[in-house]
């Protein structure tokens, strides 16, 4: 059996690393700095799987019961 991808699990929403341009627009939209975003640890299994590094920002597309789909951002920390 091939190793299953964590992102396929029904509890795990889609995670992706976003580029500088998108980071800028996100921070501008909320009017905050990077450190004020919610955090995610570098040891997090999903972060290991997508290969993000400390300082990156990941966009999480949550399936929300109230809004259908909701974007969420987390700052990768040690």
């Amino acid at each position: 059996m091939s190793k299953f991808s964590l992102l396929d699990h029904e509890f795990i929403p889609h995670h992706e690393i976003i580029d500088e341009d998108e980071i800028k627009s996100v921070l501008k939209e909320y009017n905050i700095g990077r450190e004020q975003l919610p955090k995610i640890k570098i040891e997090d299994p999903v972060i290991k799987e997508i290969g993000a590094e400390v300082g990156d920002i990941v966009k999480i597309t949550r399936k929300s019961q109230t809004a259908g789909e909701a974007p969420y951002y987390r700052y990768v920390i040690e």
Partner: peptide, 11 residues
């Protein structure tokens, strides 16, 4: 531990 923080939130 196994699925990460977002899965924990959903759980």
């Amino acid at each position: 531990e196994v699925f990460g923080i977002e899965a924990a939130r959903n759980a």
